[in-house]
Nucleic acid binder design. Structure first.
Lengths: 210, 210
DNA sequence: TAGATTGTTAATCGATTAACAATC
DNA sequence: TAGATTGTTAATCGATTAACAATC
């Protein structure tokens, strides 16, 4: 499965489909058509079929996709069938909110694929405290904890001014996947993926439509 | 200026360019070339020129774009030259973090285009309390406050289960621009714009690359 | 079988990049 | 003027949509 060939936007839609199936599972019969799934997701049926066909032939002509199987295929593709270990770097207001969010109760039968395994900050007043039962370590210990705790994804909730250097350090420690909340464009070497969520950019974009 | 003709992705890059100019302002001379701006933004020079050309001829051949003028043009385009009134709906952990974020100190000369003017929740224990000096009102008062406070953008930080109905109510109250943090796909009528920021979708997308 | 829906190919659409004449 | 860089047109690229034969 050459991931380089799969557009990001397809992966995003697959995650969307999976969530829709998990949310609405109890309302559905054994099969769901591309038409029905498309309606839920707000896309075209052709797009649903194309997205799914990139990973295999999951459907049955004349009937649709078997819901149970489709869910487990999607979970496997997205690695949602196993726990993924997440660390948060920067335990300010936002980092704390994200920690709570990640450990919150999940609704009904949804899989809970993310485990919060470590928290980091540089403030001596914070180091040693606990959030949601997870200890805050000093950022200097990050490298050691990557192997100890098996950190797979690092969430950056640090100030913009230090985001790039924190990222660089984390990359050196062997982490390849990042979700960045600092309002800066980060540069990373090949093989490292950085998704960004930028509140002020989102708001600024909305303001254009005023 | 027919906004329908401007792709979303262009607006997003313009906001990015503006931020880069504001962040790096003190390092720059009077002019910046599309080449230089492109490097900062991580895009091609042709894209920078094309994006800017959609709104006018801001550059001077052989020289580049005058930084001061370009900044103020971008601010005008993005409405960052005037305050925009934002309300947050749902003052849980995330809503509180967002409130703090929106009222935080801004670095140096950056414009501060967003004013947090109102907060809403349905929990009687929260109504009447203050966050960052702003009172939490009951969501029932939303409609009244829209006109009183001139709410232009509503940030949805409510639970996923009620996000759609809260959105519907806010639309009835006359708000047209939304930033949604609930992990659900929201439906809105034409003329209403909803941007979404979905943490679990971002993480799920990263997990694909494990 | 008849009806329905998939998987896939071909057509369309839109955005990005390249190229270059205009011009500062 | 000579050199550089814009604004814009044309070429490329990639993703979305339409269409339909295969087939359950």
């Amino acid at each position: 499965m050459p991931k380089n060939r799969i557009p990001d936007v397809v992966v995003r839609r697959l995650a969307q489909y999976l969530r829709l199936l998990e949310d609405q599972g109890f309302l559905m019969g054994h099969y769901i058509s591309s038409q029905e799934l498309a309606e839920l997701a707000g896309v075209t049926p052709a797009q649903v079929r194309k997205d799914l066909a990139m990973f295999g032939e999951f459907g049955k002509q004349g009937v649709g996709y078997p819901v149970r199987d489709l869910k487990s295929e999607l979970r496997a593709i997205l690695k949602a069938d196993r726990p993924t270990n997440v660390a948060i770097l920067g335990i300010g207001e936002l980092g704390t909110a994200l920690a709570r969010y990640l450990t919150r109760e999940q609704p009904e039968k949804a899989s809970r694929p993310f485990s919060l395994v470590a928290l980091f900050d540089v403030d001596p007043a914070k180091v040693g405290q606990h959030v949601q039962g997870v200890r805050i370590d000093h950022l200097d210990d990050f490298s050691r904890r990557v192997s100890e705790k098996g950190i797979q994804i690092a969430v950056l909730a640090v100030p913009a001014s230090v985001a790039q250097s924190v990222l660089d350090g984390a990359v050196k420690s062997g982490v390849r996947l990042f979700l960045n909340f600092a309002p800066v464009k980060l540069k990373a070497p090949d093989g490292v993926k950085v998704n960004s969520s930028d509140l002020s950019l989102e708001l600024q974009q909305l303001a254009f439509y005023l």
